[in-house]
Write a protein that binds this DNA or RNA. Structure first.
Lengths: 109, 109
DNA sequence: GTAACTTAATTACTTTTCGTAAGTAAGTGT
DNA sequence: ACACTTACTTACGAAAAGTAATTAAGTTAC
């Protein structure tokens, strides 16, 4: 049972951002529209989960999928206005990580 | 294999925030030091996971656990400076959620 | 003094999600 | 024809989450 007393909009926003990989996918797309395999290799997510996350973000209206029927065909993912508006938040997280995360203390590769 | 090209500090910061419940726990503690059961009921997390998350956040230096040997004994959780410095980020998420999350589109209770 | 209650957990068990690897469909390059 | 690339999907074992019951230490109620 969820007996939360928090703002539902805030909770919803947090639920999007707190799903594994989702934040990194958005962050990566802030540098511009990109193809599936580019995102995949830049953040180290598996195809299975990237496919899932992009679909989820598309449903939330954060990410846009565009098919360019060139030859070879090209499929690009980009941020919608809603997605782009997360830039200030990402900037804050960048600042925080620079101020507080010790380089000894990062994730193992 | 993680072949990420992102800043390791940013990745680490994101990995903290993108764990389920962790963001809400921090957000809740921004309103001041609180006891276990207060956090539990305010964000709707189970004791099992709250215990886990608080321990994790204590290890990361974001949360501080203090035992007050009064009668009755009181255990309070609060944010460290590192934790308090996440306030601007939370403010950005609040703003974003107000601007972009439709009230029809919130989580079910 | 013992039975019921509270807090801060922990343990046991089930369900959901993740991660790895392999497979697929459509097309390209040689 | 054959290998290669892209954008996925499927299968399956492993890890994490969710639910509920239990515990330990102390409090209050009678």
């Amino acid at each position: 049972m969820n007996t939360s007393q928090l703002c539902p909009k805030f909770e919803k926003a947090m639920s999007i951002l707190s799903q594994r990989w989702t934040g990194l996918v958005i962050y990566q797309l802030l540098s511009g529209p990109q193809r599936f395999c580019t995102i995949e290799s830049s953040i180290g997510i598996s195809g299975r989960l990237l496919s899932d996350r992009l679909k989820h973000l598309e449903n939330e209206g954060v990410v846009k999928r565009e098919v360019f029927p060139e030859t070879p065909i090209r499929i690009e993912y980009s941020l919608t206005e809603k997605g782009k508006d997360l830039r200030p938040l990402m900037k804050e997280l960048e600042k925080w990580s620079q101020n507080w995360i010790d380089s000894e203390d990062t994730l193992e590769d």
